[in-house]
Amino acid sequence: MQIEVKVENDILVIVIEGSIDSKTASEVQQKILESIQDNINVIMDLSKVDFVSSAGLRVLLMVYRAIKSKDGKVVLAGVSEEITDVMSITGFINFFEISETIDSAHKLF
């Protein structure tokens, strides 16, 4: 599991690679929350994420809360069909803005 963080057009872009399961979730969450700091606009690039369990959904929930509390915005980019399915089952899909690519995600800000 790897996380890369960069700033593009004043938007924090967090690229996650690998699986977010109950083993990796706490590390992913900690790294993301540390990287957010004062940023209020965040894109999470999930195009290289091959697996998300409910532990991974909890990470998305914590990021959403952190950003929402600052009146910011988080967009998920490159979400696979499988991850979209689990977000649908759990109702998470209704609360996130989802974009096919990083480029189209930028246009949502």
Binding site: L61, Y64, R65, K68, S69, T90, G91, F92, N94, F95
Partner: peptide, 8 residues
């Protein structure tokens, strides 16, 4: 499942 994520 319809509760906003802030309150879940």
């Amino acid at each position: 499942l319809n509760t906003p994520l802030e309150d879940r």
